[in-house]
């Protein structure tokens, strides 16, 4: 008897229609409000990007012209240009690209093809993911000690390029590893079955198939390197270089360095802020170009097996 009453009681609370109805409208309303808040915060991130690009673009108007791109520094803001910085950044990339691609791809091949699932592989992997999290200033200190002072390269393009290479190496390694891992096993098996050796298989089968992934990763790494500032500042790369560098041992300046010092000097001369904005637009255009090349490669050449 008492048991029945209890059942009836729970039954009633379970189906308290009025309470459910009242709760439901409230719950649905909270759901709607929350959806709007969540959407709002997503919109906030996009809005900031829009404001950032708009602000920098409007600040650069009137300053970013052919004369700005093709002349060297000057004490007069109207006459100053970034030719030296563009060439410096370009020469920097000429060092970073081959060094990181060769080292990154070789590391990835060793990890995936020769040392797969070994203790060494997991150790190197852990090491690389930790290196990727090391702040870039620290790489600057490493470059300053090892390349700048120990190898006596000073503030040359070579010192800057090698420092940058170490900084972005983890990006290339991870991308190349994924690309190599994505090469289907049956291609390798077919190659071995035809009597090809390991190295021949890697050279003629694995690498060509993995190439689009490797290139995409490398371009992304380069676009990180071209905008990175802190290691160069730590290396002592100056902004005031009037001579355009011609060799890899020359002192140089780069686009982000130029932006940094112009922004710092904007306190004294207001026009420097416009010069910095114009340099940023030039840098962002370069980045956009590199990224679109990466996307084109990814979409066009990536095969699915």
């Amino acid at each position: 008897m008492s048991c029945e009453i209890e059942h009836k009681g729970t039954f009633n609370t379970l189906l308290n229609i009025n309470k459910i109805k009242k709760n439901l409208t409230r719950r649905i309303m909270i759901d709607k409000i929350a959806t709007m808040i969540f959407f709002g915060s997503t919109l906030f991130a996009l809005l900031v990007l829009g404001i950032l690009i708009y602000r920098i673009f409007t600040q650069s108007i009137g300053w970013l012209d052919l004369q700005f791109l093709t002349s060297t520094l000057s004490i007069f803001p109207e006459k100053a240009g970034i030719l030296g910085a563009i060439i410096g950044s370009f020469l920097l990339m000429i060092i970073v690209a081959p060094v990181t691609i060769v080292l990154g791809v070789a590391t990835a091949i060793y990890l995936e093809e020769y040392a797969s699932k070994s203790k060494f592989q997991s150790f190197v992997k852990m090491n690389i993911s930790n290196l990727a999290g090391v702040p870039s200033v620290i790489f600057g200190l490493l470059g300053l000690t090892v390349f700048g002072r120990l190898l006596n390269l000073g503030s040359s393009i070579l010192a800057g390029g090698l420092t940058m290479s170490l900084l972005v190496l983890p990006i290339v390694v991870v991308a190349a590893q994924e690309a190599v891992r994505a090469v289907p096993g049956f291609l390798r098996d077919a190659s071995y079955a035809m009597g090809a050796s390991r190295w021949t298989t890697i050279r003629k089968v694995v690498l060509p198939v993995a190439l689009p992934g490797i290139l995409t990763g490398s371009i992304l790494a380069l676009s990180r390197a071209i905008g990175e500032t802190a290691p160069l500042v730590v290396l002592g790369i100056p902004a005031l270089i009037l001579r355009i560098p011609t060799g890899f041992m020359d002192n140089f300046t780069a686009l982000p360095i130029q932006i940094y010092y112009w922004t710092l000097d904007a306190v004294l001369t207001r026009e420097y802020a416009n010069l910095a904005a114009a340099t940023i637009v030039a840098l962002m255009v370069m980045l956009a170009m590199m990224n679109s090349i990466a996307i084109i490669i990814r979409n066009k050449f990536q095969k699915r097996y």
Binding site: T42, L49, L52, R55, I56, S223, P256, I259, T263, M284
Partner: peptide, 24 residues
């Protein structure tokens, strides 16, 4: 639409953010 824009936001060099912080 949103995810590529987030990627762009992540790819902007920090020096640009620095300039944005100071000047805007």
């Amino acid at each position: 639409i949103v995810k590529p824009i987030m990627e762009v936001l992540a790819g902007i060099p920090t020096i640009v953010y620095g300039f944005f912080a100071y000047s805007f």
